Simulated scan of single mutants.
Amino acid sequence: MTTTTRQPSHSLTPLVVPLLAGGLVMIALGVYGRVHTPTGFAVGPAGFSAALPMKAWLTTGAFVLAFVQVVSALSMWGRLGISIPPAVHRWSGRLAFLLTIPVAFHCLYALGLQYDVPRVLAHSLLGCFFYGVLTAKLLALPKRGLPGWSLPVLGGLTFTLLVGLWLTSSFWFFTTIGLKI
């Protein structure tokens, strides 16, 4: 009787469904943002003076939590020499995602996908890509047999897209309008 040791698969097959779903999310958000007639208002800015400060501060919170995500991921992958509990990574990601929901809702429902100002076009496209890549990452997490590079690449892309969103929104707001609450 011979026993064979099964080697972990490094096939791209487990990534097909997450990447397709992420692509569909990107397209759906972009199409909705373009065909939906913007209302001009959406989420009540509870505790904030207006919608723009709400969006700037919630995005900044997600931006800060994204750095926690990077540091905790590096720790989990043994790249820092310190141990951060995996729960820190999970909960910082959950909180970052939750902070982006009212912002994305307001952007899509109240403003739609805009293309007349380059910064706003970049911001609109970054938002669609952010949620698409995040979808792919979250759907890929429970998959077995993924190539070792897939989760770090998807996580890195998610982080990079959130940084781009922050630069084209909150950073712009704070440097143009000020630190209003």
Rank of each mutant, 00 (worst) to 15 (best):
G178H: 09
H36Y: 03
L179Q: 06
R34T: 15
D116I: 11
L65Y: 03
L157T: 07
W149V: 05
W166T: 03
L29K: 01
D116N: 14
W57S: 04
A96L: 07
H123Q: 14
I82Y: 14
A122G: 08
I84Q: 05
H106D: 15
G178P: 04
I177G: 04
L12K: 05
V25R: 03
L146Q: 15
G178Y: 11
T60A: 11
F174A: 07
T168Q: 10
F63N: 04
C107S: 11
A96P: 08
A104P: 02
G145H: 10
F129P: 00
S124W: 00
A50K: 15
V43N: 05
D116M: 13
F129S: 04
K55S: 08
R79I: 02
L99N: 07
Q114T: 13
K143D: 04
T59F: 02
M76Y: 14
V71P: 07
G145N: 10
T158H: 14
L134A: 15
G112C: 08
L126N: 03
S150D: 14
T39R: 15
L52Q: 14
P142A: 05
T4P: 02
A46L: 09
W77C: 01
G22T: 11
I101E: 03
T37F: 00
H123G: 11
A104R: 00
L99H: 06
A96V: 05
G22F: 12
A136C: 09
T37W: 02
G127W: 06
S170G: 08
R90L: 13
V31Q: 12
L139Q: 08
F173P: 03
Y115S: 13
T100K: 00
T59M: 15
L24S: 12
P53E: 07
